[in-house]
């Protein structure tokens, strides 16, 4: 059997679902960020898949995926920095402990 567009989209949807579940269910901020990364990679997979199967001549989707990966790498660096800073203050990375911005 050859791997076609539907397989890749299915895999991507599964990855996204796992990520969404993790983001909503985990209490640990690091876990949440890992889940977010999963969702981002699901989107990247979509981009690459559509690029490969819908417009194979143009490399648009693949370039976009690379661009997106660079952005999410930067984003995760920033996010982890924030988490570290919070950890230093509170000795905890539990999301439920962060209620200071309540209006």
């Amino acid at each position: 059997m050859t791997v076609g567009l539907p397989h890749l989209l299915t895999l991507s949807a599964m990855l996204f679902g796992i990520g969404l579940y993790g983001a909503l269910s985990r209490k640990n901020a690091v876990h949440v960020m890992m889940s977010l990364e999963l969702m981002a990679n699901a989107v990247n997979l979509n981009l690459v898949a559509f690029s490969r199967f819908v417009t194979p001549e143009a490399m648009t989707g693949q370039f976009f995926a690379v661009f997106s990966m660079v952005v999410s790498a930067a984003e995760i660096g920033l996010g982890l920095g924030l988490v570290l800073a919070i950890y230093r203050r509170k000795r905890s990375v539990e999301l439920d402990a962060m209620q200071e911005l309540k209006g």
């Binding site: 983001a23 911005l101 309540k102």
Partner: peptide, 18 residues
């Protein structure tokens, strides 16, 4: 009225976005 929306709970926001 609007300030009640700002719960401060991260997971609340995530749920809202999802």
């Amino acid at each position: 009225r609007m300030r009640t929306l700002q719960t401060g709970s991260v997971r609340g926001y995530q749920t809202l976005v999802a």
